[in-house]
Amino acid sequence: MKKVLLGLFIILFLGLSGGLGYYFYKKSNTDPVVYKTEAPFETEIVKKTVATGSIVPRKEVQVKSQVSGIVQELYAEAGEVVKKGQLLAKIKIVPNMVSVNNAETQLQTAKLNFNEAKRELARYEQLYEQKVIPEQEYQKYKADYNLKREALQAAESNLLLVREGASRKSGQSSNLVYSTIDGMLLDVPVKVGTSIIERNNFNEGTTIATVADMRSLIFEGKIDESEVGKLKENMDLLLTIGAIENRVFDAKLEYIAPKGVLEEGSIKFPIRAKVLLDEKDFIRAGYSANADIVLDKRDKVLAIKESMLKFDKDQPYVEVETAPQVFEKRVIKTGLSDGINIEVVSGLDKKEKIKVPDANIASI
């Protein structure tokens, strides 16, 4: 029994000795670790924030009719460039029978009053010529005749307006719709035969056309409250429009709202920027866009990748190579960062190499 136990012990000992020997053999033949290094570099660092919004015309108006009725003619289509005062549509007036009846009654009354004043003036004119009445009394009847004549003309114009939307005295028609500004027709939402409502104090009326100046565009967006304090007017913006690829447009910040609005659980502040366009540029209204707002910028500064930084009690440092694969801790002073690269103010030289954290390769 003792011989069996002794044999097992010897076999176990030899097995452990062989395993340890193999482990140390492999360990001695493992290639040494070689750490990657990178050198500082000169670059441009831009710190920016992003605002989302859309491109809209600075001047956009809705053209409405002054009378109710049915669209009889349309003289322009969406996409056309129009001038101020250009005829856009003609409205066929459907007269209100109550209004027509009142206007006709007023006209008949005005005619009766005028005819009576005319007869009285003719009678008193003869008396005046015969020196029977003084001139003062004659002038009174003449003034009354003139007033009744004006009232008759006003009643005739009123009836014409109610029936046809045109004034004989002014020579203008209220059933004709004209463009109020120079610009492009963005939309003509009505068709020939569409019934429309006039613009008045009680409703906005039916929109006949939407006209906008497409040469003067602005970016309207919103920015988070955490960033709004860093903004100021006349800052540069870089606009990226989703519908226009491989193109960045310049813009100038011109307005920051003094009051924020609650949106999706956070306070955001509306902003507005002027879009700077070339003569050949054409951007459609309503495009969604992102605005990169430049908060700070450094040109040709020494920088490293921000991922290479390490911290010791909030003190940034890097590991600088002093000899091949020998590194020392070096505290540095940093400046502006764009989230990828960070400016090195002091503590590093352009020719020095820095250890890349958590990156190594096995040497061959």
Rank of each mutant, 00 (worst) to 15 (best):
M1Q: 13
K2R: 14
V4D: 09
L12S: 15
G18H: 10
Y22G: 08
S28W: 08
S28C: 06
N29A: 14
K36Y: 13
T37H: 08
A39F: 01
P40Y: 05
P40W: 03
E42A: 15
T43F: 03
I45Y: 02
T49D: 10
T49E: 10
T49F: 03
T52C: 06
P57N: 02
V61N: 01
V63I: 14
G69E: 04
V71Q: 02
V71W: 01
Q72F: 12
Q72H: 13
L74G: 05
L88R: 02
A89H: 03
V94A: 13
A103L: 02
E104I: 12
L107W: 06
L107D: 09
T109W: 12
L112I: 13
R119T: 12
R119L: 15
L127C: 10
Y128L: 04
E129W: 11
E135S: 14
Q136Y: 11
Y138G: 06
Y141S: 10
Y145A: 05
N146Q: 15
N146D: 12
K148W: 01
R149T: 11
A155E: 07
V162S: 08
R163M: 11
G165F: 02
S170R: 11
L176V: 11
V190L: 02
I197F: 11
T206A: 09
T207F: 05
V211H: 04
A212V: 00
M214N: 04
I218M: 05
D224R: 07
S226D: 13
E227C: 01
M235F: 04
L237R: 06
L239E: 03
L239G: 04
I241H: 03
G242V: 08
G242P: 06
G242D: 14
R247Q: 12
K259G: 07
V261N: 05
V261E: 10
E263T: 08
I267S: 00
K268V: 07
K268I: 04
I271G: 02
L276D: 00
L277G: 00
R284C: 01
A285N: 05
Y287T: 00
A289V: 03
L295A: 09
D296A: 14
K300D: 14
M308L: 15
L309R: 06
D312C: 02
D312A: 06
D312L: 12
P316G: 07
Y317G: 01
T322K: 10
Q325I: 07
Q325C: 03
F327L: 01
I342C: 04
G347C: 06
K351D: 15
D358Y: 12
I361S: 13
I364Q: 13
